[in-house]
Structures are given as C-alpha cells and as structure tokens.
C-alpha cells in the first residue's frame, strides 16, 4: 500500500498492511534542511522541503503545513513577533481585539490575498505536485478558542467567559467563518485532511467547553466535512475533562496530547474513533532512549486499541534524537492496527 492508500483505508475502516504513522513535526522538520525556523514559517518552499525530507527519511505517511498558530491572526492584522529559531507568536499586550468593539468592523482576510494564509495554501499546492500521489496532505487551521485567544488575548478571553458571554459567541462565530474560508481554499489547493488545533480548549473546564467551545468546534468539523475534507483534531494540554465532548465532534482523527489517558479516551469516545498519540514528547521522545520510546508507544497502542495511528502527544521536539524518532516510526512500520 502507498502511504496515501494506507491512511485513507484506515480512515474508512478498511484493512491496512500496517499502522499509519502521522507524527507532528515542525521545528524538527526545519532542522532536516538546515533552515532557520523563521524561514520555515514564512517561506512555503522551505516548509515543503523540510516536511518531505522528514517524511521520506523517517517513513511518515503524511506531510503537513503547520508551523505556528499565528497565520490567520497575522492576516487579520494582529501584531505578531517573528523569532529566528522559534514559532511566530502573538503579542498579547497588543492584541487585535483588546478593544472588543473592534470585532464588529473586523473583516475576514482573503486566504488568497498574499498573506501568511496564502503562503500556507501555496505549500499545499506544492505538496500536491511533489508527493500528492504517495502521501496524505494535511492542512492546518486554528479552532474557535485557539483563534479567539489569538485575536482577543488569551488571558482576557478567559475572563470574557464570565464578563461578556455574548461577545464570546460573536467572536467564535467570526472565527468559524474565517477558518472555514481558509479550510475551503486549503482543500481546493490539495489538502486531504484539515488539522484543527484548538489548544486553549484544555484550559477551560467541561462547563465552559460545552457551553462556548464545543458548539463552534462542531460547526467547524461539520463544515470541513461538507467541503469534502477529513478532520484531525489536536488539543494541546490536559483534555481529560472534555474527552467525551471531543469524541462527539465526529472528527476522523482525534490526536491526543500525552496528559490525557488514551485508555480513557477510547472508553469515552467509543470503538470507532481513530485515536492518535500520545506518548510524552519531551520526557520520552526527546529525553528517553529508543527502548523507552518503543515501550511507551506499545503501551499507548495497547491502551488505545483499534483504530489507531502512531504519533507523539504533541510536536516532535526540535532536538529529539533521530534514533528515538526512528524507534517510534519502526513501531508503526512493523505493527498491525
């Protein structure tokens, strides 16, 4: 089977020759080309080269366009900081919606308007041209609370849930429209799967998650499906309290961070959800040895059961020893779901 056939078959519940392998790499991938991380974030050709080299060197089944959380916010006009060797980051004390009345006049940027979103879309087109026959191509967007936090300032948004609930609903509705437009262009450019990163969802409890976040995540997931895309959900951090809701979103892949027990995710999300993850990317993958990695991914697989995709709990850290990543990949290469 090609990588592409394998992942698509697994997503559709058909038999596969081995476990699919889809770890998140960003800074690690940039290192494979010797590029500055700043260039990886801002030049799609550098990103594509890094992803393809990494996927080929380690036998990944996919490539992705994720580099930092700030593409959409930057195009909306939010001040961001570019670092030489780290992801682009939002400058919170200059948050675009520090004055929330500005939301009413905020325009959704054109994803093809020559900004950072457009750069990500160009990466997808180049992926399609170079590896589209073999690999799964994954785009990336931010979820409602993650993007809401990028626009409003994360600390302020956390208090908005109590101070001004109607504003939060308006903000998240804006975000969903923005993200669905971005997703549509990504799918047109060649993405098979849209990754949705909604990191800040792990900061709120189940009450706020269900009242404010889940309904918009659901709209996003349903919207991507209506556009013909598959969805991979990734929420960084401790998601134990919201696992059940995450399972009910109907995502094609739930990519779990290492803090939430994957056995509990299986129990809460049912037998059909495809779980991905979730060994600790720092203490095991970066700081451990190959034997630690094999033991940890074996345990994850046993706890998750089938269907399952191999990956770490979050991004493979930049200075992960290659032999550790190889051990993770070897597990996928030699095991059935």
């Amino acid at each position: 089977m090609t990588s592409r056939e394998r992942v698509l078959a697994h997503l559709e519940g058909r038999p596969v020759d081995r476990l699919p392998l889809m770890p998140i790499t960003m800074m690690f991938a940039a290192v494979q080309t010797g590029a500055r991380y700043r260039d990886y974030c801002t030049d799609y050709r550098v990103l594509v080269e890094g992803q393809i080299r990494t996927a080929e060197a380690f036998g990944f089944d996919y490539v992705n366009t994720m580099s930092d959380p700030a593409r959409e916010a930057a195009d909306c006009g939010a001040p961001v900081e570019y670092f030489e060797s780290q992801p682009v980051a939002l400058i919170e004390d200059q948050a675009l919606l520090a004055d929330k009345t500005k939301l009413a006049s905020l325009k959704i940027p054109d994803p093809l308007g020559g900004g950072r979103m457009h750069n990500g879309i160009k990466a997808l087109a180049l992926f399609k041209e170079r590896v589209g026959k073999d690999k799964i191509i994954e785009g990336w967007i931010e979820g409602p609370i993650a993007e809401g936090a990028d626009l409003r300032g994360i600390n302020t948004l956390m208090m908005d849930f109590f101070d001004d609930p109607p504003f939060v609903h308006d903000l998240f509705a804006f975000v969903i429209e923005l993200e669905l437009r971005f997703a549509r262009e990504q799918l047109k450019a060649g993405a098979d799967v849209i990754g949705v990163g909604d990191a800040a969802a792990s900061l709120v409890g189940p009450d706020i998650y269900h009242e404010f976040v889940w309904p918009y995540e659901k709209k996003l997931v349903d919207g991507i499906h209506a556009l013909g895309g598959k969805v991979r959900l990734h929420i960084c951090g401790h998601t134990r309290r919201i696992l059940e809701g995450m399972g009910k979103l109907g995502c094609d892949i739930v990519d779990l961070d290492s803090m939430a027990p994957i056995s509990e995710a299986r129990q809460k999300m049912g037998p059909h959800t495809i779980l991905l993850g979730n060994l600790n990317p720092v203490s095991v993958l970066r700081n451990g040895n190959p034997a630690d990695v094999t033991a940890a991914i074996t345990e994850c697989h046993q706890q998750a059961g089938t269907p399952f995709i191999v990956g770490a709990g979050c991004e493979v850290p930049r200075d992960t020893p290659p032999e550790n990543l190889r051990a993770l990949c070897a597990y996928a290469h030699t095991h059935q779901p």
Binding site: M158, L203, R241
Partner: peptide, 14 residues
C-alpha cells in the same frame, strides 16, 4: 481538584 479551571482561577485572582 479539577473543580476550577483557568478562567475561574483568573477571575478569583482578579
């Protein structure tokens, strides 16, 4: 005890 989360803690702090 996971009865409060970040938003609750931040408004108490405020």
């Amino acid at each position: 005890a996971n009865e409060y989360f970040v938003p609750e803690l931040l408004i108490s702090a405020r």
